[in-house]
Nucleic acid binder design. Structure first.
Lengths: 195, 195, 195, 195
DNA sequence: CATGAATGAGAGTTCATTCAT
DNA sequence: CATGAATGAACTCTCATTCAT
């Protein structure tokens, strides 16, 4: 009763779980087909290669999950600061749910380099966020909005790695305090309390 | 003619180049031995496993390269702000020299998890920097020095990944502008120019 | 053209020949795949490891070869003495055909210990014979049927080793005389001719 | 202060422990040198190869341990039956002390075949016992003294394997009952109690 | 005599990918 | 469309043996 499309989605769902948990190289297609309950042939029917599976899976997930979250954050007549805070909240939600999107993204980018495949897709992916955040910071009047947005976004990614590392090794992590400090750093710029 | 110690160092030097360029999983020991000009057996004479090679190599490099850089930044009667700037400069130097230390660090941490090896070594590694930066921010009187230091350090790592990605794909990257924005974000907190 | 089942059986057939000729450690999987005319991957598709191959192969051979022989010996209304003689004949047939079942059995048991795998399978294997022979000796009224059966079976194994050693080194071995002496020792107990 | 001869003996003592515990193939020379506290070079200075080490070790141990035991069993004016019982006791002592002499012997014989080295040494080793036991049975007047001695000796070896297997897997083994049944089987031939 | 660093062939195993059914 | 048996190159790692010191 499983339609072809169902199967493809089930594979990508499983692949996303595995790739985001352990990264591209540490996941074998055998694990994917076993966990997804499909056949090897079925997988290769829908995806040309392991790389294609990973690529399509990441795009699929981002389209269905990040973009809506993101647009929700942008919508209405949100002020620049609200948008930044929404973005921070989105990243913290992703961390909290143990979604290793960052690990997945970087490992697949590495693979695209190794394969010498077209990697513009990954740059575009980043750029769409850079562009948006850059616009926000432009409105806020910071000196170098582009650099600020690069720093902001790279920090979200770096923190996602830190968070997953500390989580995996059993360390506590206060996400509320993290959110507040992110806001001080990227939204209100009001760190220094004494001179 | 090669002394024993020479061989071990030559292996680690080569391993560092390869691991930091492509990460743990993308480098085979065969590449290492060919590039280092040693035999397979020679490698395993000095290192118990691929993981042990990577671990020893990273520690060796950090001891010989990061620590001295770091201590240089701390020394004399540097003010907190100067220390932060020195640290930023150190990270930018590392990026400039195309040293994928971050990629190496995270890929080997993943491998230590997969192997269920003791990973406290990697936490300790991070913590030594967190502790130091945290102290600086404490002196500067920021609200949450620990969180600030986590954000600062994770940003250095995240930016290293971004930089290497953009570099690999042929994008320009203005390191001078990056440095200035880092300073505004983490040292002077003086972003906002208009309200 | 080769059906799946064919391939698995061909591998086990080849593996049995090699393992029983030289024992577990002296046979490489490369030899197995070359002799069986299959690929490395094909072997590992059917068997999880070298140990699993050896284990499955031995069980498969015993099921298809020893059990039928054995049951043939037991069947009808064979007297205890006839059953013992049938068993002796079976062992002598195995020796005559140069089947190093004993060598295979002991070498794989060693490997199961080294791997700390479940070894109850091997004990069960022995026990099924001990139990049967013990019952026979019980019926015959010997003092310690269990010990007698252990001695009897261990002697079959020990002799199989001796026989293969002497055969390999070119010594003659009179199987007819061996059979008669086995019968005197284990069936009629009538050795002593003069006091 | 260790004299060369001391070193050689220490190596052989260690090698005997390891080889008799696990067999030729499962012991690496690295284990031997580490356990014996000598260098690789030291080992190869005294022994030409792994095989030579094993061969010399087995002969050395048999000369120093089995032969004296054996001669003790033969000495005085022991009757044939007493000699057999002494031999049985000797084998049981060896089993009790967990000395896997049999495993060692057979594994090294396999290796001598693989190497196509001269194996007459191993035949001679067996023959010296066959000859002796055969003589005893001749004096006792059994029908086929040579076959009887082969059966007797192969049973000692086979039982040593069984015993070590059961021991390793945690099974009890009543050595007193074993001794008695061996005596009934090989010395008094008085098994049958009812017809 | 003794050392231990170095060798390299070969081991068991993994895995993305293909293709006859 | 879907299957899963089959492939083989590549992987990490082992080990007896050599040899410059």
């Amino acid at each position: 009763m499983t339609s072809g499309s169902d199967m493809k989605d089930r594979i990508m769902k499983t692949a996303f779980e595995l790739f985001s948990e352990r990264g591209y190289d540490k996941v074998s297609l055998n694990e994917v087909v076993v966990k997804a309950g499909v056949s090897k042939g079925g997988l290769f029917h829908h995806f040309d290669s392991k790389y294609a599976l990973a690529r399509d899976t990441l795009i699929w997930w981002a389209t269905n999950n990040m973009e809506p979250m993101f647009l929700r954050g942008l919508k209405k007549d949100a002020s620049p600061k609200e948008v930044l805070i929404n973005f921070i909240d989105m990243m913290i939600d992703i961390m909290k749910d143990d979604i290793g999107f960052t690990r997945f993204f970087w490992s697949i980018f590495d693979e695209s380099m190794r394969r010498q495949e077209d990697h513009s897709i990954w740059l575009d992916f980043l750029e769409q966020y850079t562009y948006m955040i850059s616009g926000i910071y432009g409105k806020m009047g910071v000196k170098d909005p582009y650099m600020k947005s690069m720093i902001f976004l790279s920090n979200m990614d770096g923190m996602a790695l830190y968070y997953s590392m500390l989580k995996q090794t059993g360390r506590e992590f206060d996400l509320k305090a993290l959110r507040e400090e992110f806001i001080r750093t990227y939204v209100t710029f009001s760190e220094e309390v004494r001179e």
